[in-house]
Simulated assay, not measured.
Amino acid sequence: MTILTSSTVDTPVGAFTVLVDPDGAVRAAGFTTDTDPLLALVHPSLRAPVRALPDAGAATRAVADYLDGRLDALDAVPVRQHTGGEFRDRAWRTLREVKPGQPVTYTGFAELTGRPRAVRAAAAACAYNAVALLVPCHRVLRTDGSLGGYRWGLDVKKWLLGHERRLTTT
């Protein structure tokens, strides 16, 4: 039987929890200590019982490294989401290519996916992203440059963007 490991890391904007499968892929992540809302984000076909451990291996270390200033530390951590749609899969892969300190607009994000007219679908991919931070939907802004929405709160999104900007402009 598959069991997901949950591990929580303290951050300057609150606790951040990952749900990791036995292969080391992150199935859900977010700024919470409660695994129930995270598990609810996971597609039913990828859900499993959860056990809490202080360390979820590479995912936990990568989050700590990101917080310590190695912004590329999250890039190598595998993620596993089920979408049921080719565009959303492409959009999530594309989000992982958006560099820290270089946020894009929803329009720019749609263009990066190769479907410039799919702005609403690009926004939906952000909204349905279960793997916050590792699939960095926080790097997508409204056309006017304002923050827009973020499942974990605009204060968190603002801090993440500021953290990345500080480290990429020094």
Rank of each mutant, 00 (worst) to 15 (best):
T2C: 08
I3C: 09
I3Q: 13
T5D: 04
S6H: 02
T8D: 01
T8K: 00
V9R: 00
D10Y: 10
T11L: 01
T11W: 00
A25T: 10
A25Y: 08
A29H: 00
F31W: 08
F31H: 06
T33S: 10
T35Y: 13
T35D: 14
D36H: 12
L38I: 07
L39E: 12
A40G: 15
A40V: 14
L41P: 04
H43Y: 11
P44V: 14
P49G: 11
V50N: 07
P54M: 10
D55C: 10
A56N: 05
A58P: 02
R61S: 11
A62G: 13
A64C: 07
Y66M: 02
L67W: 01
L67Q: 01
G69S: 11
L71G: 01
D75F: 07
P78R: 08
P78N: 12
P78H: 10
R80C: 13
Q81C: 10
H82S: 08
H82M: 10
G84V: 05
G85T: 02
G85H: 03
F87Q: 00
D89Q: 07
A91Y: 01
A91I: 04
W92F: 09
W92H: 06
W92D: 00
R96L: 06
R96G: 03
V98N: 06
K99T: 14
P100C: 05
P100I: 03
Q102M: 12
P103Q: 02
V104C: 04
Y106M: 11
F109S: 00
A110M: 02
E111V: 13
L112N: 05
G114Q: 09
P116H: 12
R117W: 13
R117F: 13
A122D: 03
A124N: 15
N129L: 05
V140A: 05
L141K: 09
G145Q: 12
S146Q: 06
S146L: 06
S146R: 07
L147W: 03
L147H: 03
G148C: 09
W152E: 02
L154P: 05
L154C: 10
D155C: 11
K157F: 08
W159Y: 10
G162K: 14
H163R: 05
E164N: 08
R166H: 13
R166T: 12
L167D: 00
L167W: 04
T170N: 15
T170F: 14
